[in-house]
């Protein structure tokens, strides 16, 4: 076999061209434009005199308010991820190990059912439950358990509840595939050697499912920190997150440059997370890093 023959491009590789073009057009180009807008004084297409500036980033780091908003966004993302993992892992484990095909189908339907309804509708449903005149507060008041409504909405807890409900299916579906591929005989071997079921789970199943935990967590965190509808409806603008601030800058302050800088920061947070994920995955799979 000659070198020329081995270097000849695979004809099937051409099939990737449309998706590569799509990716370049609808992802790389907008991100590139956003990065450019974040370091310009205005829009060069419509404004006559535009110069490079770092003022949008300086504004963000000069004022602790924006750093607080960034931290609030990350905090909501982290808590949502942890709660989604705590709820999703047992469910995914059950789905992966259930013997009955009907049972598996029913569980899958239960997990997927919320995804068949729009995020706005689901969030409004939470509002009818959590508001001062909502089902929970009115029930507790009518039972005489409380006299004043509990502050369930317009809090970070309310936002996390809404986000967890929306993103748990992403965690479950990611984990189910990974847990399902773990050979059950490994757990059985551990138990045969004297390990309790809990110890077998902790020392065998849990480490082997780490790639799924990391992938599911990455997905949920990225979705949670970029969520707009749920934080705005359940937070009532009293909990400011980066996506809300970005929308505010575009729709009410008409400051596209600052909004772009905030968008770049949001993207950087996600990118750092992906890098950390790659390293972590490399370590748990026994490699120094993913090639």
């Amino acid at each position: 076999m000659s070198d020329a023959a081995t270097r000849r491009p695979n004809g099937l590789a051409l099939f990737i061209l449309p998706s590569a073009l799509l990716f370049a057009l609808f992802f790389l180009l907008p991100i590139g434009l956003m990065a450019l807008m974040s370091v310009l004084t205005g829009n060069p297409v419509v404004a006559p005199k535009v110069a490079f500036t770092t003022r949008h980033y300086a504004r963000m780091f000069d004022d602790p308010y924006y750093l607080e908003v960034i931290w609030t966004t990350i905090r909501i993302g982290l808590v949502t991820t942890l709660v989604a993992l705590a709820i999703g892992y047992p469910l995914a484990h059950w789905m992966a190990r259930i013997r009955s095909r009907t049972g598996h189908a029913l569980l899958l339907m239960a997990v997927l059912a919320p995804m068949l309804t729009g995020i706005v509708v689901r969030t409004f449903a939470w509002m009818t439950l959590l508001s001062d005149k909502g089902v929970i507060n009115q029930t507790l008041i009518s039972l005489g358990i409380i006299s004043q409504p509990l502050k369930l909405m317009y809090t970070e807890t309310g936002i996390v509840v809404g986000l967890v409900h929306i993103y748990v299916p992403f965690m479950v579906l990611t984990l189910t595939g990974v847990i399902g591929r773990i050979d059950e005989r490994l757990e059985q071997a551990a138990e045969n050697l004297g390990a309790s079921p809990l110890r077998a789970f902790i020392e065998v199943t849990l480490p082997l499912s780490l790639p799924g935990i990391l992938a599911g967590s990455l997905l949920v965190f990225a979705l949670a920190i970029s969520a707009y509808v749920t934080p705005i409806l359940l937070g009532g603008f009293q909990i400011m997150t980066l996506p809300i601030l970005i929308y505010q800058q575009i729709s009410a302050n008409f400051n596209v440059g600052f909004a772009a800088a905030l968008g770049i920061i949001l993207l950087m947070i996600s990118l750092l997370l992906v890098i950390a994920y790659n390293h972590a995955l490399g370590l748990v799979s026994g490699q120094r890093e993913l090639q």
Partner: peptide, 10 residues
């Protein structure tokens, strides 16, 4: 919002 759209147009 209308103004950002107008702002983005020529």
């Amino acid at each position: 919002p209308y103004l950002p759209k107008l702002q983005a147009s020529s």
